[in-house]
Amino acid sequence: MNYSIEAENLNLWYGDFQALIDVNVKIPHGQITSLIGPSGCGKSTLLRCFNRVNERYGNVTTEGKIEVLGKNIYDTDVSLPELRKAVGMVFQRPNPLPISVYENILFGLRIHSPMRSITKADADAIVEEALKSVFLWTDLKDKLKARATSLQLEQQQKLCIARLLPLKPKIILMDEPCSALDAKGTRAVEELMEILAGTYTFVIVTHNMAQARRVSKECIFMFLGELIEHRETQSLFTDPQHEKTSDYVHMRYG
């Protein structure tokens, strides 16, 4: 088995509060893995460890080892921009930058390349390709100059996925990517993930268990900072091994 992310004995504290306790996890390559658990159990925290954006939240201490694509991301020679290029992230509320659709897609690339090194023709091609891969091209090809924040929410969220693609990421992390969308938008984003799953490794946090069952191959259940169970999704739901998992999947927590 080929793993994209391997975490070993991962502990994390916000100040004195331990938010992750001895987490060991291996996330397989090229498929969708979902993270479920009650509110405040550390799902977002774990997800944010994988591209090290956690460190921006102030008083954070991390212990343990996380290998992303075979490299320990806490090594001193790891470059954060390179890590974040390889590990993209999509947020709960669509957060396109308040610039044009066109520039949103090029934003990442412009950050990672020297000034004026992208020609207009290249840029056009990149934008077209990115929008085509998320099926927004026909809708947006006449609106490339429009402000990205003026799009519909579903389009915004797809754009947030599209803007990762020019950086050629290997892994895409998503923190409740559909919770701001309606049923139709949710379905559209799920379909998109299923189509992209072969090319990219997805880790998604979700509160929607139906969604976890629909899209993910493997599922991780967390509880109060601990990883309780990590199995193939269907069997985790039909035949949970732990009492806490079974309580959760049968909705016995608030």
Partner: peptide, 24 residues
């Protein structure tokens, strides 16, 4: 969210300031 988006795309603090925060 704007800052988060830029950081998650790999921008450095300076780039976030220069490309997003200051223009806005």
């Amino acid at each position: 969210p704007i800052r988060e988006a830029a950081y998650a795309l790999g921008a450095s603090h300076w780039q976030v300031l220069k490309k997003q925060v200051i223009p806005i």
